[in-house]
Amino acid sequence: MSEAVAIAHDGHSHDGHGHDAGHGHDAGHGHHQLTENNFLGLPNIKLAMWAFLGSECMFFGSLIGTYFFYREMSLGGPMPEDIFDVNITSISTFLLLMSSVTMALAVDNARQRNFGKMRAFILATAAQGAAFVGFQIYEFSHFVAHGLKLSTSLFGSTFYTMTGFHGAHVSVGVIWLVMVALLATQGKLNKDKIAINVEVMGLYWHFVDIVWIIIFTFVYLLEFTR
């Protein structure tokens, strides 16, 4: 294994091995000292996250697909156009979108080893994520007050399952972000691994954002087209 790592290490200085070792890929820069790298010279933790996010595509793809399969098939209860509020959802959508920017800046600062700024951006990301979850709690309770429950109709079942799982993902992300920020405050993070760890956390966070980009457009905005 150490041989493979050595090759990956060399890949940056000797042009001959460059292409095999992921040469020319920006994100590979900080990783050459990691012992967890595999024979590709890529960090396993990042490979694992991308593989996980691939499976998450299938997960959310099925939930959104099911929502569309049963769209307009409800027999009673409030319908989407009766209860969706484009203003409130636009605000929460914008917050989540901007949280992706602060996340990207946190990753950038982690790579630059500006750990103070990194922590600030991580906390800003967590705050926006928490606000998004707050908006979702408000939205759900508003919908329930209007008579839409999980068992009311096909709309209720598919909508709450889909957006509920997304909200759960955001919540997990917020907990993750806050924990990393706390560990950074206490100086308990391994300074050599912090960049890759924050980057992988960022991948998860951005994924949660892109799922919402799809849900916001195809579930919410679609109801307001004439």
């Binding site: 992921g22 890929h25 990042k46 490979l47 991308w50 299938m58 996340m103 990207a104 960022g202 951005h206």
Partner: peptide, 29 residues
């Protein structure tokens, strides 16, 4: 977001494969 924030565009093809093959499967389903 995927290409720039998640840095997939300039990143290694293995990451692209791992993410995009199930993504297209999800799209087709």
């Amino acid at each position: 977001v995927v290409g720039e924030f998640m840095h997939l565009r300039p990143d290694h093809g293995v990451y692209k494969f791992l993410f995009m093959s199930p993504m297209f499967l999800a799209l087709f389903s």
